[in-house]
């Protein structure tokens, strides 16, 4: 690349411009919310992008002030429910995808087909019957009542991504392990899982985002702070008076909710990227 750097100078400029445009387009809303979260109540109405007076008031309100209970319990609910749902989804999907990639059993296609069908089924059409069912069996407004529907969102995509990933791992490795004296489980644990880890991380992050971002289930299947996740809780923010919009507080909450996601990506990006470059897998 370095040798023909002069030739690509023009192209490089083009790419830079394009990247900046895309970044601006994608990040502008985030920046706007970040700016809004530092505005005072009076400042909200003006058309300026940056706040005229920077204030931590909105953050104070949701973290230690009036809205503290509403926000922090919701935040706890969100983290707990999402982590549990992600964990279960990844463990189940790993076993399921492994079976799909490696074993020949009747109904393999049906499982994949059903998973796909479930994942494209509109959430809104499921939520009403689920609401009635959950009320009848006592799952309404509980963590479990949200974890189960979240699994229906995260499992299909996890199964599909992991199955694709497992198919890339050479079968020889597993057979070699079996000939070396491993049971099927040992071969899976010691030869396949270490190689599949990058795929599992990627899948876990995707599953986490899906569950973290859910709004429809969160607002429909909860009624109190017992299980209400953050996206739903934001809708219940109220201003200091009836006539005040809680825009500042919502913005601050939105920023805080974004932080775990950013942290996750930063933490695991090495695993995701390093993933398939381990080499020696092919001859």
């Amino acid at each position: 690349m370095a040798s023909n750097g002069k030739l690509t100078g023009k192209q490089r400029l083009g790419w830079t411009v394009l990247t900046v445009v895309v970044l601006l387009y994608a990040l502008f809303p985030v920046a706007a919310i970040l700016a809004t979260s530092f505005k005072t109540q009076a400042d909200l109405g003006n058309a300026a992008f940056l706040p005229s007076n920077w204030t931590w008031a909105n953050y104070e309100m949701i973290l230690v002030g009036d809205a503290q209970e509403l926000f922090l319990t919701a935040f706890r609910n969100s983290i707990g429910i999402t982590l549990i749902a992600t964990f279960i989804a990844v463990v189940l999907a790993t076993l399921c995808a492994y079976a799909i990639a490696r074993l020949n059993f009747p109904g393999k296609r049906i499982i994949l087909g059903t998973a796909l069908a479930v994942s494209i089924f509109p959430v809104i059409s499921v939520v009403t019957p689920l609401f009635n069912l959950w009320r009848n069996i006592g799952l309404y407004d509980t963590w479990l009542g949200l974890i189960i529907p979240y699994l229906s969102l995260t499992l299909p995509i996890s199964i599909w991504t992991l199955a694709a990933f497992f198919r890339q791992i050479p079968w020889d490795l597993e057979q070699a392990a079996q000939v070396d004296g491993a049971t099927q489980w040992q071969a899976f644990r010691r030869a396949i899982v270490p190689l599949a880890m990058p795929g599992v991380f990627t899948t876990a992050i995707i599953a986490f985002f899906i569950a973290w971002n859910d709004f429809v289930y969160g607002i429909s299947l909860t009624s109190t702070e017992a299980a209400r996740p953050v996206p739903a809780a934001l809708a219940f923010f109220t201003g200091a008076s009836q006539f005040e919009e809680p825009t500042g507080a919502i913005s601050a909450a939105a920023i805080i909710v974004t932080i775990p996601v950013v942290v996750l990506v930063l933490l695991f990006q090495r695993q995701i990227v390093s993933g398939l470059t381990q080499g020696a897998v092919k001859g």
Partner: peptide, 20 residues
């Protein structure tokens, strides 16, 4: 008998080394 019970050693065409 399962492969592990036969006490044989095999060298694969792809070598099948554990990359990790």
């Amino acid at each position: 008998k399962a492969p592990r019970e036969r006490n044989l050693a095999m060298v694969f065409q792809s070598y099948a080394l554990y990359p990790h």
